[in-house]
Design a protein around this nucleic acid. Structure first.
Length: 959
RNA sequence: GGGCUCGUAGCUCAGUUGGUUAGAGCGCGUCCCUGAUAAGGACGAGGUCACAAGUUCGAAUCUUGUCGGGCCCA
């Protein structure tokens, strides 16, 4: 009997109900929704929806078309997508064209590996065809994987740097550089494989520990007196620079000796082989180098800078020429003598030091590793590796070898032939960074010439916004120190540099010739370079008399891939419809300060005179939970594809948005696993809201919200949330947006408001104003939350949107939340007085909860519904105001009943709250479970409180 | 070795111009509810703010250095 009644009462409640399931089943459901979006062409629908809105463009940096996407890609694309979706909802038209970097060494190597030795017999066109197919395959695979992540974009029309039109556009940029006079050719040392007689890229070097002979050589000083003055010595023994090298064979190319201007040097007098000599050496290394020798005297120290200033020259140890002393900061006192042998034709450092002081790039070594005719006769035709002992012997004969020793160090090797490489100066193409130029527009505007470097520094310093802000300093540093851009590579898989040579070896390179080739590439792709003759390629262009078309030879070098990817703004922003230049945002990992950001900035400055972007945002790198970097062989390595298949894209997206991307981003499978709780909290909160709105019809049921109510408090909290989340998104602080949203679900809704509203939602008559009021607020909450979550949880928000019965005005029929706009705050005005009341109520709530906990422990009061909350106030006015909150005063802590007492509160507070166990005083209502004095007050329903009796009575009357 | 950068509870984050006992959510522990139920609630324990000096009446916050991590160079 009692059980029957219980059942009956339960059936009379308005319990939550929704088809929006608790279990997300993201892995199963996301692909279904994705298909739906693709079928309805959501991307273009969204663009159409915003047809009249201003453009906002994020230009996509192209990932390399190689392998599956990893967690770094996932972070990058998720941040992009999230930001673009926010901008869309904010009221922008946001077209997004993804792209891929398709040329380059890694792909060429993969193909080499696949082909093995037979590659040598293959035609370059054939090899390139295979490279193309390989890149196309992975660009397509990654395309699908990015779509699976939920990234919205024009996936059917991505840019590929290897497409003919793209290549032509890159050449168009190059043509402008030629026109501006910024392209030139000169010698530069590059890693060179003697075995394969080819230049190598850095990525093709393999460092191995080897044992070499290092020698200490005495370089006789030519202006002895000048240097003696520096050290304040008077003895007339021969003065020598003591120079150390691990590559004796580069001595024939020696042009200078580098010293560190800040290091102390001394002149040490020593005896060797019966002769007394004075050697210049770094103070810190004197004892080590001269150990075992008879040292007679050591001079006062002098800075390296003083050596440079003395302008003293030295005689080359075995050639009839003089060298100079140069300053270089990279000179250390770790090993050697502190005086570094400098051969600009044989090393990167040497080269940079040399050219900055006007030295030629001299390299007497031929492509086969032998000395050429400019080398001394006794070395001509000798392979450099055989030259070491010959040179050492020669130095010994001339008594200029101080000592020799074996040294074990790491030395680069050609990873194919496994042989040590050499640095050899070869002809390379460059872009001048310091040469002033002017664009036609600027000329018309009466501006003056400026170099690429100055333009870049100006733009970075003033015009571009960096997020985080330190990106500016980082890029400024890199721009300040960067050398001219070497744009040529001696490889097969890339964009050919469109230069022709006549029989005299002179280069033909004009804007017209470049554009002629560009037209062919646009039509046939860069294959044309290999399949067509120079005459065909130059169709429509007159060549000078000394460049007869039929006698021309084609350049074999290709472009540095950075020049291609760095010209993407031209292909996408300037050539595609519905784009703009410059764009609003470039967003990549922080390694791209040196990479794509800088190498997009320079081409754009050369072509347009202005940067391609207004803002640059960078994110950090994924690290293991202990903060160290992940490698592919690591157990902590997280595969994006596997994790999406395990957890669903939304969970990973949410995780991406929850971390502060400015620094390192710790990640592991475990981290993601644990993150599922946060997703569930948000999902369940949405579910709770939706499930209490099943019978709500905003058009008829919506209520005014009185200020003195928890509803108004909740609405105000929602307004704050909307404002703060919007602001966080707007500042790209996604993790802040996430935290605000999550905490709102956990605290404001789950713990406070949702909990307090249960009694009225369930027990009141369905259409009671109290209940409808709450539903009015919950409906607002659901709408706003779903929208604010949409940029992050693209699938879940869309699913929830389907179950939202009362959508915001004007958006009722939208098929997807992604077509909706940002929620707006209710605009409700709240007086300071009300705000103070809310503050007091929340404080009292804390106090009451604490007291409830005490009663639970002391007397076993387990249900708050068995307690009464007494508000003790002696301020009549305040009491009257609080009374307006009605049942909120008990529901806010889940109590069964509340009352007021005139007991004075203590001095500290205006109001005090007292919680009393009423299990022995009142009866509990059988329906609402509230324990209160009015239970049994309606004669027909002795087990119900007055409210529930009325509800049942009216329901009975209806039924 | 250089440039830039990061280091606050187990985790993810707040900490305004230096100013009480350094906060939140999650997780964890204990308990409650069983009308959000593979849910929900309450309470509680967790921190030498990487370390060390210094400036100051007072430092998570400013300065210098040290240690450890990351990106980019060399």
């Amino acid at each position: 009997m009692a059980d029957d009644k219980k059942k009956l009462y339960k059936q009379s409640l308005n319990l939550p109900n929704t088809p929006f399931s608790m279990e997300a089943k993201l892995v199963v459901n996301e692909p279904v929704r994705l298909k739906k979006w693709q079928e309805m062409d959501l991307y273009h629908k969204v663009l159409e929806k915003h047809a009249g809105d201003p453009l906002w463009i994020l230009h996509d940096g192209p990932p390399f078309a190689n392998g599956d996407i990893h967690i770094g890609h996932l972070i990058n694309k998720t941040l992009k997508d999230c930001i673009m979706r926010f901008r869309t909802m904010q009221g922008h038209r946001v077209p997004y064209v993804p792209g891929w970097d398709c040329h380059g060494l890694p792909i060429e190597h993969k193909i080499q590996q696949e082909l093995g030795p037979k590659m040598r017999e293959m035609d370059v066109v054939d090899i390139r065809r295979r490279c193309y197919d390989y890149a196309a395959k992975y660009a397509t695979i990654q395309n699908e994987q990015f779509q699976r992540l939920g990234v919205l974009g024009d996936w059917a029309n991505p840019y590929w740097t290897m497409k003919g039109t793209y290549e032509a556009n890159t050449l168009e940029v190059f043509a402008r550089f030629v026109e501006n006079g910024l392209v030139y050719k000169k010698l530069k040392p590059v890693p060179w494989s003697i075995a394969n007689q080819t230049a190598l890229a850095d990525a093709e070097l393999e460092y191995k520990d080897v044992e070499d002979t290092s020698i200490y050589v005495e370089f006789p000083v030519a202006d002895q007196d000048a240097l003696r003055q520096v050290f304040e010595i008077t003895e007339q023994h021969p003065l020598m620079l003591l120079v150390w090298t691990t590559t004796p064979w580069t001595l024939p190319a020696n042009l200078a000796v580098a010293v560190n201007p800040d290091v102390d040097y001394v002149a040490a007098t020593y005896r060797r082989d019966g002769e007394t000599r004075v050697g210049v050496i770094a103070e810190a290394l004197r004892e080590k180098v001269l150990a075992g020798m008879e040292v007679l005297a050591v001079s006062k120290p002098a800075k390296g800078a003083a050596l440079v200033e003395s302008k003293a020259q030295y005689r080359h140890p075995f050639l009839d020429k003089k060298g100079i002393i140069l300053p270089a900061n990279y000179v250390t006192t770790e090993d050697g003598t502190g005086l570094v042998h400098t051969a600009p034709g044989h090393g990167e450092d040497d080269y940079l030091t040399g050219i900055s002081h006007g030295l030629p790039v001299y390299c007497p070594v031929l492509h086969n590793g032998t000395f050429d005719k400019t080398a001394p006769e006794w070395l001509q035709g000798v392979v450099v590796w055989k030259a070491n002992p010959i040179i050492i012997e020669r130095l010994k004969t001339d008594k200029l070898l101080l000592k020799e020793e074996k040294i074990s160090h790491s030395y680069p090797h050609d990873w194919r032939s496994k042989t040590p490489i050499i640095f050899r100066a070869t002809e390379q193409w460059f872009i001048a960074v310091d040469k002033p130029f002017i664009t036609p527009d600027e000329k018309a505007a009466g501006k003056s010439e400026m170099s690429l470097r100055d333009r870049a520094l100006h733009a970075v310093g003033r015009d571009i916004r960096f997020i985080p802000d330190w990106g500016r300093a980082r890029m400024t540093g890199m721009l300040t120190s960067r050398p001219d851009w070497c744009i040529s590579r001696q490889r097969a898989w890339g964009l050919p540099i469109p230069v022709f040579y006549n029989e005299q070896g002179e280069a033909l390179l004009t804007p017209e010739t470049v554009m002629a080739v560009a037209r062919k590439f646009a039509e046939h792709g860069s294959e044309a370079w290999f399949t067509m003759s120079p005459a065909q390629l130059l169709e429509g262009v007159e060549t000078p008399a000394n460049f007869p078309k039929e006698k021309l030879r084609k350049e074999t070098d290709i472009f540095d891939v950075w020049f291609e990817s760095g010209s993407s703004w031209h292909d996408v922003l300037q050539k595609r419809e519905d784009h703009k230049f410059p764009c609003d945002l470039y967003l990549e990992g922080s390694d791209q300060h040196r990479g794509w950001f800088q190498l997009s900035l320079l081409p754009s400055l050369g072509f347009n005179g202005v940067p391609p972007f207004k803002q640059v945002l960078t994110h950090g790198f994924v690290v293991k939970p202990d903060g160290t970097k992940v490698s592919k062989s690591d157990k902590e390595y997280v595969t994006a594809v596997a994790e999406i298949n395990r957890h669903g894209a939304d969970l990973l997206r949410l995780w991406c948005c929850s971390v502060d991307y400015q620094g390192d981003i710790p990640c592991s499978p475990k981290v993601l696993q644990e993150f599922a709780d946060k997703y569930r909290k948000i999902r369940n909160t949405l579910r709770y809201l939706l499930s209490n709105l099943y019978d709500f019809d905003a058009a008829k049921d919506a209520q005014e919200i009185p200020s003195r109510s928890l509803d108004a408090w909740a609405l105000d909290q929602l307004d704050t949330l909307i404002r703060e989340v919007t602001e966080a998104y707007d500042r790209y602080e996604l993790h802040r947006a996430f935290r605000l949203l999550h905490d709102f679900c956990a605290v404001q809704i789950s713990s406070v408001y949702g909990n307090a509203m249960k009694d009225r939602l369930y027990c009141e008559k369905p259409d009671s104003p109290l209940r409808r009021r709450c539903q009015t607020v919950m409906n607002q909450m659901a709408g706003a939350l779903i929208k604010l979550l949409a940029p992050m949880l693209v699938f879940t928000a869309d699913e929830a949107w389907e179950h939202l019965r009362n959508r915001p005005a004007g958006e009722e029929s939208l098929e997807s939340v992604h077509l909706a706009s940002l929620p707006k705050p209710s605009g409700m005005q709240v007086s300071d007085e009300i705000r103070e009341e809310w503050r007091i109520l929340m404080e009292l709530r804390d106090s009451a909860l604490l007291q409830l906990d005490g009663l639970k422990k002391q007397v076993g009061l387990n249900k708050a519904l068995d307690a009464e909350v007494i508000y003790c106030i002696d301020d009549d006015q305040l009491r009257r105001r609080l009374m307006e909150y009605g049942v909120d005063l008990e529901d806010i802590v889940g109590a069964g009943f509340h009352s007021f007492a005139e007991e004075p509160a203590d001095q500290q507070q205006a109001v005090r709250v007292k919680v009393i166990d009423r299990r022995n005083d009142y009866q509990a209502c059988a329906r609402s479970w509230k324990r209160r004095p009015d239970v049994g007050s309606v004669a027909d329903y002795p087990d119900l409180c007055a409210r529930d009796a009325a509800v049942i009575a009216s329901a009975g009357a209806i039924g």
